[in-house]
Design a protein around this nucleic acid. Sequence first.
DNA 1: GAAAACTCGTGCAACGATACAGTAGTTCGT
DNA 2: ACGAACTACTGTATCGTTGCACGAGTTTTC
Lengths: 358, 358
Amino acid sequence: MVRAAGYAQRVRIDQEQGCTIATIKDVAKAAGVSPSTVSNLLNAREHLMHPDTRRRVLEAMEALSYKPSRIAQQLRGAPNPTLGLIVPSVANPFWGSWAAELETASHARGRQIYLCNSQRDPERERTYVEQLWADGVEHIVLSTSLPSLDHLRPAMDAGVQIIAFDREQQETDPPELLNVSVDNEGGTWLATRHLLERGHRRIAFVSGAIRTVSRRRRLAGYQRALAENGIPLDDDLVPASPDLGDADSGTLARRAVDALLALDDPPTALVAVNDMFALGAGAALREAGRPDIAIIGFDDIPIGSLVSPALTTVRQPLREMAEAIVALATEPSDAEQRYPLVFPPTLVVRASTPRRTT
Amino acid sequence: MVRAAGYAQRVRIDQEQGCTIATIKDVAKAAGVSPSTVSNLLNAREHLMHPDTRRRVLEAMEALSYKPSRIAQQLRGAPNPTLGLIVPSVANPFWGSWAAELETASHARGRQIYLCNSQRDPERERTYVEQLWADGVEHIVLSTSLPSLDHLRPAMDAGVQIIAFDREQQETDPPELLNVSVDNEGGTWLATRHLLERGHRRIAFVSGAIRTVSRRRRLAGYQRALAENGIPLDDDLVPASPDLGDADSGTLARRAVDALLALDDPPTALVAVNDMFALGAGAALREAGRPDIAIIGFDDIPIGSLVSPALTTVRQPLREMAEAIVALATEPSDAEQRYPLVFPPTLVVRASTPRRTT
DNA sequence: GAAAACTCGTGCAACGATACAGTAGTTCGT
DNA sequence: ACGAACTACTGTATCGTTGCACGAGTTTTC
């Protein structure tokens, strides 16, 4: 609430040193016209000035290397063209890949991206949204799986368009919220069916805390596939975890694997909630001398193809989703017809899911 | 240069719908005082108003859920407290970890971070710097290894403080530029010496294009360690690559490994320019049936401990470097004495560098 | 030949917040 | 009793840009 005063001094010192940046008035003076005329030129109203004037103003702008102050423009109501992107954890390669993909799609339409790291903390999520809002950013892609988005109401009420990613629509969602996501339930269903086809019957589900919308759906897909094949659900095969796991998913996966191997009737295959858990579980299994146990991941992060055995996984169509989101932010009405909001996953079979042998 | 006009309309429509956000005038009117008084309260000048007035103003602010417009404050010269961070590739787990680390250090001092992805493109680097500058951001951490930073002169002249990361100081650098980096040359020297101690004599260096300051230094460290041990340099052991490699380092590493294995006298150990190349090379070696060849990476990304064999690597002290950088941005004079600008790396020995057997 | 229309501009108020000068009204010192 | 000092505010100009109303001078129209 209370802030130290006196920052205007700094600006004044800069000016005394001659580090001043040119304003519209400087350009106007240099060109011998009024600021209004310069503004007219800048705002596509060139038709109401003489070509000679136009040229003089352009020369003055060039000479002073003038750039309009976006802060002043924003004060007048101009939007900040930047797209905000909030992710749970940049240290997690999946979110890094996602950010890179959205960057590419956004850049193709001439919009830059500010990426923010929420650490899955709703409070940080809120402060980043308000920070972006304070900077005039109009569109925010919120990669979150929190069931409720109430903490963002103030910003949404103020007109910030929020597009949620990795979070299928909930009943309690406000109507202006858009949700773009892969079909999580369908993805783990594919994964589990793949393991069933390879002869596995005792299949575990390895995950951090199942507290997000997407993880609930992934668990549901695993359960549906088992149920459809007449395999009874066994809670022992879904070890509980208190933490969500991002950079530390290695530790969590290891703990889950230890619990599974300690069972009287351990599983022959694992469905991991994502690739990071799959990699962690794989390392734990090899250390425990059970490299025979099959593992399938979810996300298809690039590293999955570099490790050995290469990871079988469920691919999220990141490129297509990124394009849809950027289109939604750029031309909402048009894009809402062209793109779905839930995208189909695909199975990527590699070496980590061998046929059951024993 | 020329932009579509008419955005003030949007604001007006919002206001008609009642979505108006409270301004300092609204608060003043509601509290029955002048805007100046509200401003005085906001700017730590409470001593010059009656306690009752103070209370009324605070109540009005609360009732209208007023937040000062930072855009207006910035127009008056207030700084944007956000820290800008530009990285070459968020899809690369090392840069993701670095961003997360800087986020944590920065958050501890109450400053948020805008992360920008440059794709190693100087032009993008420039537009992001100017974007951040346009938003009033005063401190930018530029994670780049480009030898020249001339493209950022305009912003630096305008007073934007740039702190370069992963780039040791160059002679041509302007004096106001700060460079924070790990001792790259010392790191690969450590790595190479470790392989020598394990009995290896024929050691290759696997990298993407060696076009950045940090990679040149890493190559130099490898060469120095060999020279110090009387091993002649062999260009065949440093396969050239046209691309730098980030998300695609798997492919590049594979190509390098193929070239090395085709030699008459192939290496028994590899020094990789970073962990991503090390992982890619490891996969390629296993596929080629040569899992016996030792590999050491650089960076110590979290995944390195999850793969098998776990990756021996050179750790960058990211936490310490992040703290130093945030301190430099927050209290420059103080921090310049407390922290070094070049940080020592440490060797992390795991399973991927066995003693030479044959 | 006067009104209308067009050309090429300028002046002004506003966006929201702020620093400083100014100004009533009260209290104090001598 | 009268200026000085204090308290508790307010008025105003400013940051850089913009849209609209206005205006002076020239050309066209009937």
